[in-house]
Design a binder for these strands. Structure first.
Length: 484
RNA sequence: GGGCCGUUAGCUCAGCUGGUAGAGCAGCAGACUCUUAAUCUGCGGGUCGGAGGUUCGAUCCCUCCACGGCUCACCA
Protein backbone atom coordinates (compact mmCIF):
# COMPACT_ATOMS: atom_id res chain seq x y z
CA UNK A 1 0.00 0.00 0.00
CA UNK A 2 1.36 3.38 -0.87
CA UNK A 3 1.21 6.50 1.22
CA UNK A 4 -1.93 8.07 -0.20
CA UNK A 5 -3.85 4.82 0.14
CA UNK A 6 -2.70 4.48 3.72
CA UNK A 7 -3.90 8.00 4.43
CA UNK A 8 -7.25 7.36 2.76
CA UNK A 9 -7.72 4.20 4.83
CA UNK A 10 -6.98 6.04 8.07
CA UNK A 11 -9.38 8.82 7.09
CA UNK A 12 -12.08 6.31 6.20
CA UNK A 13 -11.64 4.72 9.62
CA UNK A 14 -12.04 8.08 11.28
CA UNK A 15 -8.38 8.22 12.31
CA UNK A 16 -7.16 11.03 10.07
CA UNK A 17 -3.61 11.88 11.24
CA UNK A 18 -4.10 15.43 9.96
CA UNK A 19 -6.86 15.96 12.50
CA UNK A 20 -4.36 15.67 15.37
CA UNK A 21 -3.96 18.96 17.19
CA UNK A 22 -1.24 18.70 19.84
CA UNK A 23 1.34 16.41 21.34
CA UNK A 24 2.80 16.62 24.81
CA UNK A 25 6.51 16.71 23.97
CA UNK A 26 8.27 16.34 27.32
CA UNK A 27 11.81 15.80 26.08
CA UNK A 28 14.02 16.31 23.06
CA UNK A 29 16.53 13.81 21.69
CA UNK A 30 19.62 15.72 22.81
CA UNK A 31 18.22 16.03 26.34
CA UNK A 32 17.69 12.30 26.62
CA UNK A 33 21.25 11.62 25.51
CA UNK A 34 22.74 14.34 27.71
CA UNK A 35 20.79 13.37 30.85
CA UNK A 36 20.70 9.66 30.13
CA UNK A 37 21.85 8.54 33.58
CA UNK A 38 19.07 10.48 35.27
CA UNK A 39 16.41 9.54 32.74
CA UNK A 40 17.17 5.82 32.40
CA UNK A 41 13.99 3.79 32.97
CA UNK A 42 11.98 7.02 33.32
CA UNK A 43 9.01 7.83 31.13
CA UNK A 44 9.35 10.36 28.31
CA UNK A 45 7.13 11.62 25.55
CA UNK A 46 8.92 12.62 22.36
CA UNK A 47 7.96 13.61 18.85
CA UNK A 48 9.60 13.99 15.48
CA UNK A 49 10.10 12.64 12.01
CA UNK A 50 10.76 8.99 11.17
CA UNK A 51 14.16 9.00 9.44
CA UNK A 52 14.65 5.27 9.17
CA UNK A 53 12.65 2.17 9.95
CA UNK A 54 14.48 -1.08 10.60
CA UNK A 55 11.89 -3.83 10.83
CA UNK A 56 13.30 -7.14 12.05
CA UNK A 57 10.03 -8.98 12.46
CA UNK A 58 8.76 -9.15 16.02
CA UNK A 59 10.65 -5.97 16.84
CA UNK A 60 11.67 -2.81 15.00
CA UNK A 61 13.85 0.26 15.38
CA UNK A 62 12.99 3.78 14.32
CA UNK A 63 15.38 6.70 14.11
CA UNK A 64 13.31 9.67 15.22
CA UNK A 65 14.59 13.13 14.33
CA UNK A 66 13.56 16.21 16.26
CA UNK A 67 14.90 19.76 16.44
CA UNK A 68 18.09 18.70 18.18
CA UNK A 69 18.98 15.50 16.39
CA UNK A 70 18.05 11.86 16.43
CA UNK A 71 17.08 9.28 19.01
CA UNK A 72 16.38 5.62 18.43
CA UNK A 73 12.98 4.18 19.29
CA UNK A 74 12.67 0.47 20.03
CA UNK A 75 9.29 -1.11 19.53
CA UNK A 76 7.81 -4.57 19.81
CA UNK A 77 4.42 -6.20 20.37
CA UNK A 78 5.06 -6.63 24.08
CA UNK A 79 5.46 -2.92 24.58
CA UNK A 80 2.71 -1.71 22.26
CA UNK A 81 0.24 -4.57 22.05
CA UNK A 82 -0.26 -6.71 18.95
CA UNK A 83 -2.73 -4.40 17.24
CA UNK A 84 -0.79 -1.17 17.72
CA UNK A 85 2.46 -2.85 16.73
CA UNK A 86 0.92 -4.03 13.46
CA UNK A 87 -0.43 -0.54 12.86
CA UNK A 88 2.93 1.15 13.41
CA UNK A 89 4.48 -1.16 10.85
CA UNK A 90 2.33 0.50 8.19
CA UNK A 91 3.91 3.88 8.88
CA UNK A 92 6.52 5.29 6.56
CA UNK A 93 9.86 7.00 6.66
CA UNK A 94 9.09 10.70 6.70
CA UNK A 95 5.99 10.46 8.89
CA UNK A 96 5.70 12.69 11.95
CA UNK A 97 5.01 10.64 15.06
CA UNK A 98 4.72 10.92 18.81
CA UNK A 99 6.24 8.28 21.09
CA UNK A 100 5.63 7.63 24.77
CA UNK A 101 7.94 5.18 26.47
CA UNK A 102 10.85 4.76 28.79
CA UNK A 103 14.51 5.51 28.32
CA UNK A 104 16.87 2.56 28.07
CA UNK A 105 20.02 1.37 26.41
CA UNK A 106 19.98 -1.44 23.84
CA UNK A 107 22.33 -4.38 24.09
CA UNK A 108 24.52 -2.67 21.50
CA UNK A 109 24.66 0.36 23.77
CA UNK A 110 22.45 2.76 21.81
CA UNK A 111 20.51 5.17 24.02
CA UNK A 112 16.89 4.63 23.01
CA UNK A 113 13.26 4.98 23.96
CA UNK A 114 11.30 1.78 24.48
CA UNK A 115 7.86 2.57 23.05
CA UNK A 116 4.75 1.98 25.12
CA UNK A 117 2.49 4.09 22.96
CA UNK A 118 2.85 5.58 19.49
CA UNK A 119 0.71 8.06 17.59
CA UNK A 120 0.81 9.14 13.96
CA UNK A 121 0.74 12.94 14.09
CA UNK A 122 1.10 13.71 10.38
CA UNK A 123 1.48 11.62 7.25
CA UNK A 124 4.30 12.28 4.77
CA UNK A 125 2.91 11.72 1.29
CA UNK A 126 6.22 12.40 -0.41
CA UNK A 127 9.17 10.11 0.30
CA UNK A 128 12.34 11.65 1.70
CA UNK A 129 15.56 11.80 -0.29
CA UNK A 130 17.88 8.87 0.00
CA UNK A 131 19.10 8.25 3.54
CA UNK A 132 22.76 7.61 2.91
CA UNK A 133 23.82 10.05 0.21
CA UNK A 134 21.24 12.56 1.36
CA UNK A 135 20.21 15.59 -0.64
CA UNK A 136 23.03 17.21 -2.61
CA UNK A 137 21.46 18.87 -5.65
CA UNK A 138 21.99 22.58 -4.85
CA UNK A 139 18.91 23.59 -6.76
CA UNK A 140 16.62 21.40 -4.66
CA UNK A 141 18.51 22.35 -1.50
CA UNK A 142 17.83 26.06 -2.02
CA UNK A 143 14.37 25.83 -3.56
CA UNK A 144 13.05 23.31 -1.06
CA UNK A 145 15.07 24.28 1.97
CA UNK A 146 12.76 22.25 4.24
CA UNK A 147 14.11 19.08 2.61
CA UNK A 148 17.65 20.37 3.05
CA UNK A 149 16.96 20.98 6.73
CA UNK A 150 15.46 17.53 7.21
CA UNK A 151 18.29 15.75 5.42
CA UNK A 152 21.41 17.78 6.27
CA UNK A 153 22.06 18.34 9.98
CA UNK A 154 24.78 20.88 9.12
CA UNK A 155 22.09 23.14 7.68
CA UNK A 156 20.07 23.18 10.87
CA UNK A 157 23.26 23.85 12.79
CA UNK A 158 24.19 26.81 10.58
CA UNK A 159 20.82 28.46 10.95
CA UNK A 160 20.80 27.95 14.70
CA UNK A 161 24.20 29.63 14.75
CA UNK A 162 22.86 32.43 12.59
CA UNK A 163 20.28 33.21 15.24
CA UNK A 164 22.89 33.12 18.00
CA UNK A 165 25.21 35.45 16.09
CA UNK A 166 22.43 37.96 15.55
CA UNK A 167 21.48 37.70 19.19
CA UNK A 168 25.12 38.23 20.25
CA UNK A 169 25.30 41.40 18.15
CA UNK A 170 22.09 42.72 19.70
CA UNK A 171 23.29 41.84 23.17
CA UNK A 172 26.58 43.63 22.57
CA UNK A 173 24.85 46.81 21.50
CA UNK A 174 21.89 46.69 23.88
CA UNK A 175 24.20 46.46 26.89
CA UNK A 176 26.06 49.53 25.66
CA UNK A 177 23.08 51.81 25.49
CA UNK A 178 22.13 51.46 21.82
CA UNK A 179 18.47 51.75 20.95
CA UNK A 180 17.22 49.40 18.25
CA UNK A 181 14.80 51.04 15.83
CA UNK A 182 13.03 50.10 12.63
CA UNK A 183 13.40 52.53 9.75
CA UNK A 184 11.32 52.47 6.57
CA UNK A 185 11.87 49.82 3.92
CA UNK A 186 9.61 51.65 1.47
CA UNK A 187 10.75 55.12 0.54
CA UNK A 188 10.47 57.60 -2.28
CA UNK A 189 14.26 58.02 -2.20
CA UNK A 190 16.72 55.13 -2.05
CA UNK A 191 19.87 56.74 -0.77
CA UNK A 192 22.66 56.20 1.72
CA UNK A 193 24.62 53.86 -0.54
CA UNK A 194 25.72 53.40 -4.12
CA UNK A 195 23.45 50.71 -5.53
CA UNK A 196 20.55 50.23 -7.88
CA UNK A 197 17.28 49.88 -5.99
CA UNK A 198 14.22 47.73 -6.51
CA UNK A 199 11.24 49.75 -7.62
CA UNK A 200 7.67 49.18 -6.47
CA UNK A 201 4.44 51.10 -6.39
CA UNK A 202 1.92 52.20 -3.81
CA UNK A 203 -1.68 51.90 -4.98
CA UNK A 204 -3.01 54.02 -2.13
CA UNK A 205 -0.59 56.86 -2.75
CA UNK A 206 -0.29 56.30 -6.51
CA UNK A 207 3.42 56.66 -6.03
CA UNK A 208 6.62 55.00 -7.15
CA UNK A 209 8.54 53.70 -4.16
CA UNK A 210 11.94 52.12 -3.71
CA UNK A 211 12.98 49.33 -1.38
CA UNK A 212 15.73 50.60 0.85
CA UNK A 213 19.38 50.10 -0.07
CA UNK A 214 20.61 51.43 3.29
CA UNK A 215 19.21 52.72 6.57
CA UNK A 216 21.83 55.41 7.00
CA UNK A 217 19.89 58.59 6.36
CA UNK A 218 17.01 57.60 8.65
CA UNK A 219 19.31 56.53 11.46
CA UNK A 220 21.13 59.86 11.31
CA UNK A 221 17.77 61.58 11.63
CA UNK A 222 17.41 59.59 14.87
CA UNK A 223 20.76 61.01 15.99
CA UNK A 224 19.52 64.50 15.16
CA UNK A 225 16.44 63.67 17.21
CA UNK A 226 18.65 62.88 20.21
CA UNK A 227 18.83 59.09 20.43
CA UNK A 228 22.63 59.31 20.75
CA UNK A 229 23.18 55.57 20.12
CA UNK A 230 20.94 53.82 17.64
CA UNK A 231 20.91 50.84 15.30
CA UNK A 232 18.73 49.07 12.77
CA UNK A 233 19.37 45.45 11.87
CA UNK A 234 17.29 44.18 8.99
CA UNK A 235 16.92 43.52 5.32
CA UNK A 236 18.32 45.75 2.61
CA UNK A 237 17.58 45.25 -1.07
CA UNK A 238 19.95 45.88 -3.95
CA UNK A 239 19.09 45.24 -7.54
CA UNK A 240 22.51 43.90 -8.49
CA UNK A 241 24.19 40.70 -9.57
CA UNK A 242 23.83 37.48 -7.61
CA UNK A 243 26.84 35.39 -6.68
CA UNK A 244 28.34 33.56 -3.73
CA UNK A 245 28.74 36.84 -1.82
CA UNK A 246 25.59 38.69 -2.92
CA UNK A 247 21.90 38.00 -2.49
CA UNK A 248 19.43 40.67 -3.64
CA UNK A 249 17.97 40.86 -0.14
CA UNK A 250 20.46 40.65 2.67
CA UNK A 251 20.78 41.55 6.31
CA UNK A 252 22.72 44.60 7.33
CA UNK A 253 23.20 46.34 10.61
CA UNK A 254 23.87 50.02 10.69
CA UNK A 255 24.66 51.78 13.92
CA UNK A 256 25.36 55.38 14.88
CA UNK A 257 26.93 56.86 17.98
CA UNK A 258 26.91 60.55 18.83
CA UNK A 259 30.11 62.18 20.06
CA UNK A 260 32.22 59.45 18.48
CA UNK A 261 34.31 59.18 15.33
CA UNK A 262 35.49 56.47 12.96
CA UNK A 263 38.25 55.37 15.30
CA UNK A 264 35.62 54.59 17.93
CA UNK A 265 33.76 52.65 15.24
CA UNK A 266 36.89 50.63 14.54
CA UNK A 267 37.11 49.55 18.15
CA UNK A 268 33.42 48.80 18.27
CA UNK A 269 33.66 46.74 15.07
CA UNK A 270 36.56 44.53 16.13
CA UNK A 271 35.27 44.05 19.66
CA UNK A 272 31.72 43.28 18.63
CA UNK A 273 32.68 40.72 16.00
CA UNK A 274 35.21 39.09 18.32
CA UNK A 275 32.46 38.92 20.94
CA UNK A 276 30.07 37.22 18.52
CA UNK A 277 32.78 34.75 17.48
CA UNK A 278 33.54 33.88 21.08
CA UNK A 279 29.87 33.52 21.97
CA UNK A 280 29.05 31.26 19.05
CA UNK A 281 32.33 29.55 18.11
CA UNK A 282 33.96 29.63 21.52
CA UNK A 283 36.99 31.49 20.17
CA UNK A 284 37.92 34.63 18.27
CA UNK A 285 39.92 32.37 15.97
CA UNK A 286 37.88 30.51 13.38
CA UNK A 287 38.70 28.37 10.38
CA UNK A 288 37.20 29.69 7.16
CA UNK A 289 37.54 27.45 4.10
CA UNK A 290 40.71 25.99 5.54
CA UNK A 291 42.29 29.31 6.52
CA UNK A 292 42.52 30.44 10.12
CA UNK A 293 40.99 33.86 10.60
CA UNK A 294 41.88 35.59 13.85
CA UNK A 295 39.30 38.16 14.93
CA UNK A 296 41.15 38.97 18.16
CA UNK A 297 41.37 42.76 18.59
CA UNK A 298 43.09 44.95 17.70
CA UNK A 299 42.88 44.33 13.96
CA UNK A 300 45.52 45.60 11.61
CA UNK A 301 45.08 49.25 10.58
CA UNK A 302 46.36 50.59 7.29
CA UNK A 303 45.54 53.66 5.27
CA UNK A 304 44.38 53.18 1.70
CA UNK A 305 47.40 55.13 0.47
CA UNK A 306 49.77 52.89 2.44
CA UNK A 307 47.98 49.76 1.25
CA UNK A 308 48.44 50.83 -2.37
CA UNK A 309 52.09 51.63 -1.67
CA UNK A 310 52.68 48.30 0.03
CA UNK A 311 50.80 45.98 -2.32
CA UNK A 312 50.92 47.93 -5.57
CA UNK A 313 54.23 49.68 -5.22
CA UNK A 314 52.57 52.98 -6.11
CA UNK A 315 53.03 56.01 -3.90
CA UNK A 316 50.06 58.38 -4.09
CA UNK A 317 51.16 60.45 -1.11
CA UNK A 318 52.90 62.98 -3.33
CA UNK A 319 50.25 63.04 -6.06
CA UNK A 320 48.55 66.41 -6.08
CA UNK A 321 46.50 66.58 -9.25
CA UNK A 322 44.04 64.39 -11.15
CA UNK A 323 46.38 64.66 -14.16
CA UNK A 324 49.28 63.07 -12.28
CA UNK A 325 47.01 60.29 -11.05
CA UNK A 326 45.74 59.56 -14.56
CA UNK A 327 49.32 59.28 -15.79
CA UNK A 328 50.03 56.71 -13.07
CA UNK A 329 46.94 54.69 -13.96
CA UNK A 330 48.09 54.58 -17.55
CA UNK A 331 51.69 53.72 -16.65
CA UNK A 332 50.72 50.95 -14.23
CA UNK A 333 48.07 49.57 -16.53
CA UNK A 334 45.04 49.39 -14.27
CA UNK A 335 42.87 51.73 -16.33
CA UNK A 336 40.52 48.80 -16.96
CA UNK A 337 39.73 48.79 -13.23
CA UNK A 338 38.21 52.24 -13.55
CA UNK A 339 34.46 52.53 -13.77
CA UNK A 340 34.50 55.79 -15.70
CA UNK A 341 36.48 57.04 -18.63
CA UNK A 342 40.00 57.96 -17.61
CA UNK A 343 39.48 61.64 -18.39
CA UNK A 344 36.50 61.77 -15.98
CA UNK A 345 38.45 60.15 -13.15
CA UNK A 346 39.73 62.09 -10.19
CA UNK A 347 42.74 61.23 -8.10
CA UNK A 348 40.37 59.65 -5.62
CA UNK A 349 38.78 57.37 -8.21
CA UNK A 350 42.23 56.26 -9.33
CA UNK A 351 43.57 55.63 -5.83
CA UNK A 352 40.49 53.53 -5.06
CA UNK A 353 40.89 51.58 -8.31
CA UNK A 354 44.55 50.93 -7.49
CA UNK A 355 43.50 49.68 -4.06
CA UNK A 356 40.94 47.32 -5.56
CA UNK A 357 43.38 46.13 -8.20
CA UNK A 358 46.40 45.46 -6.01
CA UNK A 359 45.62 45.46 -2.30
CA UNK A 360 42.13 44.13 -1.68
CA UNK A 361 42.85 40.52 -2.59
CA UNK A 362 45.78 40.42 -0.13
CA UNK A 363 43.68 41.31 2.91
CA UNK A 364 42.98 37.90 4.44
CA UNK A 365 43.24 38.58 8.16
CA UNK A 366 40.86 41.25 9.51
CA UNK A 367 42.19 44.63 8.38
CA UNK A 368 40.85 48.15 8.56
CA UNK A 369 41.59 50.19 5.46
CA UNK A 370 41.43 53.83 6.54
CA UNK A 371 41.04 57.19 4.84
CA UNK A 372 39.05 56.96 1.63
CA UNK A 373 38.97 59.61 -1.10
CA UNK A 374 36.31 62.27 -0.64
CA UNK A 375 34.99 61.74 -4.18
CA UNK A 376 33.68 58.27 -3.36
CA UNK A 377 32.49 59.10 0.17
CA UNK A 378 29.67 61.65 -0.10
CA UNK A 379 28.35 61.22 3.45
CA UNK A 380 31.70 61.39 5.20
CA UNK A 381 33.54 64.10 7.07
CA UNK A 382 36.83 65.19 5.54
CA UNK A 383 40.12 64.60 7.26
CA UNK A 384 41.40 67.64 9.12
CA UNK A 385 44.02 69.26 6.90
CA UNK A 386 43.26 67.19 3.77
CA UNK A 387 39.92 67.87 2.11
CA UNK A 388 40.62 65.24 -0.60
CA UNK A 389 40.41 62.46 1.98
CA UNK A 390 37.76 61.43 4.49
CA UNK A 391 37.58 59.80 7.89
CA UNK A 392 36.28 56.52 6.56
CA UNK A 393 37.32 52.90 6.87
CA UNK A 394 36.25 49.60 5.50
CA UNK A 395 37.05 46.31 7.22
CA UNK A 396 38.26 43.45 5.05
CA UNK A 397 38.37 39.76 5.89
CA UNK A 398 39.38 37.07 3.42
CA UNK A 399 39.57 39.80 0.75
CA UNK A 400 35.92 40.65 1.32
CA UNK A 401 34.49 43.85 2.63
CA UNK A 402 32.52 43.26 5.79
CA UNK A 403 31.96 46.75 7.07
CA UNK A 404 32.04 50.39 6.11
CA UNK A 405 32.19 53.20 8.62
CA UNK A 406 32.96 56.85 9.00
CA UNK A 407 32.94 60.02 10.94
CA UNK A 408 29.60 61.28 9.71
CA UNK A 409 29.41 64.47 7.73
CA UNK A 410 27.19 66.78 9.76
CA UNK A 411 27.70 70.07 7.89
CA UNK A 412 24.44 70.59 5.94
CA UNK A 413 26.00 72.99 3.45
CA UNK A 414 28.86 70.64 2.58
CA UNK A 415 26.41 67.74 2.49
CA UNK A 416 24.26 69.51 -0.07
CA UNK A 417 27.37 70.18 -2.18
CA UNK A 418 28.27 66.50 -2.07
CA UNK A 419 24.78 65.47 -3.18
CA UNK A 420 25.02 68.01 -5.98
CA UNK A 421 28.30 66.40 -7.07
CA UNK A 422 26.58 63.00 -6.99
CA UNK A 423 23.81 64.36 -9.20
CA UNK A 424 26.48 65.28 -11.74
CA UNK A 425 27.87 61.73 -11.57
CA UNK A 426 24.38 60.48 -12.24
CA UNK A 427 24.19 62.67 -15.32
CA UNK A 428 27.50 61.17 -16.47
CA UNK A 429 25.72 57.83 -16.50
CA UNK A 430 26.41 56.49 -13.01
CA UNK A 431 22.97 55.18 -12.05
CA UNK A 432 24.33 54.19 -8.66
CA UNK A 433 25.26 57.70 -7.59
CA UNK A 434 23.62 58.77 -4.36
CA UNK A 435 20.12 60.23 -4.63
CA UNK A 436 19.56 63.61 -3.03
CA UNK A 437 17.43 63.44 0.11
CA UNK A 438 16.41 67.02 0.86
CA UNK A 439 14.68 66.21 4.12
CA UNK A 440 17.87 64.56 5.32
CA UNK A 441 19.81 67.74 4.57
CA UNK A 442 17.11 69.68 6.45
CA UNK A 443 17.64 67.43 9.45
CA UNK A 444 21.33 68.33 9.46
CA UNK A 445 20.29 71.99 9.51
CA UNK A 446 18.56 71.27 12.80
CA UNK A 447 21.96 70.16 14.04
CA UNK A 448 23.57 66.74 14.30
CA UNK A 449 26.27 66.14 16.88
CA UNK A 450 29.63 64.79 15.72
CA UNK A 451 28.80 61.14 15.09
CA UNK A 452 30.47 57.91 14.17
CA UNK A 453 28.52 55.41 12.09
CA UNK A 454 29.04 51.93 10.72
CA UNK A 455 27.37 49.36 8.53
CA UNK A 456 28.17 45.66 8.75
CA UNK A 457 27.11 42.95 6.33
CA UNK A 458 25.59 40.50 8.78
CA UNK A 459 25.32 37.61 6.33
CA UNK A 460 29.03 37.85 5.60
CA UNK A 461 29.90 37.77 9.29
CA UNK A 462 27.71 34.70 9.60
CA UNK A 463 29.50 33.12 6.64
CA UNK A 464 32.84 33.47 8.40
CA UNK A 465 31.56 32.13 11.70
CA UNK A 466 29.80 29.15 10.12
CA UNK A 467 32.42 28.40 7.45
CA UNK A 468 29.82 28.88 4.72
CA UNK A 469 31.17 29.00 1.19
CA UNK A 470 28.18 30.79 -0.29
CA UNK A 471 25.88 33.47 1.09
CA UNK A 472 23.03 31.16 0.06
CA UNK A 473 24.15 28.78 2.76
CA UNK A 474 23.35 31.35 5.46
CA UNK A 475 20.09 32.66 3.97
CA UNK A 476 17.21 30.26 4.51
CA UNK A 477 15.37 31.03 1.31
CA UNK A 478 17.77 32.67 -1.16
CA UNK A 479 16.38 34.50 -4.18
CA UNK A 480 15.75 32.06 -7.05
CA UNK A 481 14.07 32.20 -10.42
CA UNK A 482 10.83 30.24 -10.59
CA UNK A 483 11.46 26.94 -12.36
CA UNK A 484 8.19 26.28 -14.13
C1' G B 1 25.31 40.26 -19.32
C1' G B 2 29.93 36.88 -21.00
C1' G B 3 32.46 32.03 -20.43
C1' C B 4 32.58 26.95 -18.62
C1' C B 5 29.86 22.87 -16.58
C1' G B 6 25.38 20.36 -15.30
C1' U B 7 19.94 18.54 -15.89
C1' U B 8 19.00 10.31 -16.79
C1' A B 9 13.86 6.40 -11.56
C1' G B 10 11.63 9.68 -5.37
C1' C B 11 17.28 10.43 -3.99
C1' U B 12 22.73 9.60 -5.18
C1' C B 13 24.87 8.37 -9.64
C1' A B 14 26.62 5.00 -14.14
C1' G B 15 25.53 4.78 -19.33
C1' C B 16 32.05 3.43 -24.14
C1' U B 17 32.94 5.47 -31.42
C1' G B 18 24.80 6.89 -32.11
C1' G B 19 21.40 0.86 -32.00
C1' U B 20 14.71 3.38 -27.92
C1' A B 21 18.35 2.72 -20.39
C1' G B 22 21.19 0.49 -15.48
C1' A B 23 23.01 0.21 -10.08
C1' G B 24 22.50 1.39 -4.92
C1' C B 25 19.16 3.40 -1.58
C1' A B 26 13.87 4.51 -1.34
C1' G B 27 9.00 1.84 -2.78
C1' C B 28 5.82 -2.79 -3.04
C1' A B 29 5.14 -8.34 -1.36
C1' G B 30 7.31 -11.78 2.10
C1' A B 31 11.01 -13.73 6.24
C1' C B 32 13.46 -12.36 10.74
C1' U B 33 12.75 -10.17 18.83
C1' C B 34 18.81 -5.73 19.71
C1' U B 35 19.04 -3.19 14.68
C1' U B 36 21.60 1.41 13.59
C1' A B 37 23.72 2.51 5.48
C1' A B 38 20.22 -3.96 9.37
C1' U B 39 20.10 -8.57 6.52
C1' C B 40 17.77 -12.19 3.08
C1' U B 41 14.11 -13.57 -1.19
C1' G B 42 10.97 -11.71 -5.01
C1' C B 43 8.67 -7.50 -7.82
C1' G B 44 7.45 -2.86 -10.04
C1' G B 45 9.43 1.83 -11.38
C1' G B 46 11.78 6.48 -16.68
C1' U B 47 8.10 11.63 -22.36
C1' C B 48 16.69 10.60 -20.43
C1' G B 49 14.95 19.30 -18.59
C1' G B 50 11.92 21.41 -23.18
C1' A B 51 11.56 22.40 -28.59
C1' G B 52 13.63 21.81 -33.26
C1' G B 53 17.48 19.60 -36.59
C1' U B 54 21.04 15.73 -38.67
C1' U B 55 20.37 10.32 -39.20
C1' C B 56 17.43 4.22 -41.25
C1' G B 57 17.80 5.10 -35.94
C1' A B 58 19.48 10.26 -30.87
C1' U B 59 20.19 9.96 -23.55
C1' C B 60 24.60 10.38 -26.91
C1' C B 61 25.91 14.78 -32.52
C1' C B 62 24.09 20.14 -33.87
C1' U B 63 20.87 24.66 -32.85
C1' C B 64 17.67 27.33 -29.72
C1' C B 65 15.19 27.72 -24.97
C1' A B 66 14.50 26.93 -19.47
C1' C B 67 16.54 26.19 -14.71
C1' G B 68 20.87 25.53 -11.67
C1' G B 69 26.22 25.63 -10.26
C1' C B 70 31.03 27.80 -10.80
C1' U B 71 33.53 31.94 -12.78
C1' C B 72 34.35 36.91 -14.95
C1' A B 73 31.97 41.60 -15.25
C1' C B 74 28.85 44.47 -12.06
C1' C B 75 28.38 45.25 -6.87
C1' A B 76 28.82 50.21 0.59
Amino acid sequence: MVRREKLARLQAEGRDPFSRLTWNQTHHSAEIKRDFEALENKGVSIAGRVMSFRDIGKAAFIDLQDRDGRIQVYLNAEGLGEEAYAEVKTWDVGDIIGVEGYVFRTRRGEMSVHAKGMTLLAKALEPLPEKFHGLKDPEIRYRRRYLDMVMNPQVMDTFKKRTRIIRAIREYLDTRGYIEVETPILSTIASGAAARPFVTKSNALNLQLYLRIATELYLKRCIVGGMERVYDMGKNFRNEGIDIRHNPEFTMIELYQAYADYKDMMELCENMIAFAAEQVCGSAKVIYQGTEIDFTPPWRRLTMTDAVKQYGGIDFSGVKTDEEARAIAKAKGFEHELKKKLKDCTKGDILNAAFEAFAEKELIQPTFIMDYPTDISPLTKQKPGDPTMTERFEAFVYAREISNAYSELNDPIVQLDRFTQQAKERELGDDEAYMLDEDFVSSLEVGMPPTGGMGIGVDRIIMFLTDAYSIRDVILFPTMKPNN
